[in-house]
């Protein structure tokens, strides 16, 4: 029963309480890494892991963290967690760590992590915090993947590196009809505009979210 009672903790962040489009958390990384779908997916999975585990740890410690220094404590816990995972990967799975090391800094400075610690894990039990972490990371991941999908498709004509629109140099596929890649999509400002459009669509569907 307990499981179903809390299922809104996972489903809400996917839609009406999305961390990026509604709570305005984790924007920096959503802009930086969404030029390619693959990087978006990797980042989504990494945040899922860190936020899930981090939320549980903070929730377990919620009664012993002094409120005056809670921010620094939270930051240090997440940083230590990420650095240790990075060190272990470097020692035992070097190739994997090469791919993931780039994300280390982005995860530590990702305000979605701090935001959820502060807003949820500090006041809730571990299991609920875990669900909240997973739900918010998933909501974050969904937006990342949508933005990554459009930016890679329109920007380089590929998806996960596969040339789905044909070859732009040899003019096959849609390029034969005069289609050109829009290199602009690869630049970070277009990620902002893509996000703006996603918000537009989301709020047209659910009028309750409209700001005045």
């Amino acid at each position: 029963m307990g499981l179903f009672k809390d299922s809104n903790l996972i489903t809400d962040p996917l839609t009406d309480d999305n961390p990026i489009t509604i709570q305005v958390l984790g924007i920096c990384s959503a802009l930086a890494i969404t030029a390619e779908l693959e990087a978006s997916i990797v980042m989504a999975i990494a945040v899922l892991f860190v936020l899930g585990v981090g939320n549980v740890i903070i929730s377990l410690m919620r009664n012993i963290i002094p409120s005056k220094i809670r921010i620094i404590v939270q930051l240090i816990i997440v940083a230590a967690l990420v650095i240790i995972v990075d060190l272990i990967l470097k020692a035992f799975a070097y190739q994997l760590s090469k791919t993931l090391s780039v994300f280390v800094g982005l995860i530590i400075t990702n305000c979605i992590i701090m935001g959820r610690f502060e807003a949820f894990a500090l006041a809730n039990k571990p299991w609920r915090s875990f669900l909240d972490g997973i739900g918010n990371a998933a909501g974050y991941g969904v937006i990342l993947i949508i933005v990554g999908f459009f930016r890679e498709l329109l920007g380089s004509g590929t998806l996960l590196g596969f040339k789905v629109l044909g070859d732009s140099i040899e003019k096959t596929g849609v390029y034969a009809y005069g289609y050109e890649n829009n290199g602009f999509m690869l630049l970070a400002p277009m990620a902002l505009i893509t996000l703006g459009i996603i918000i537009w669509i989301q709020r047209s569907k659910n009028k309750a979210l409209i700001e005045d």
């Binding site: 930086a32 890494i33 030029a35 990797v42 780039v102 994300f103 990554g148």
Partner: peptide, 11 residues
């Protein structure tokens, strides 16, 4: 190689 360029772009 690089230490931390933007995944998908500079990386």
């Amino acid at each position: 190689d690089h230490k931390g360029e933007t995944p998908g772009l500079g990386a």
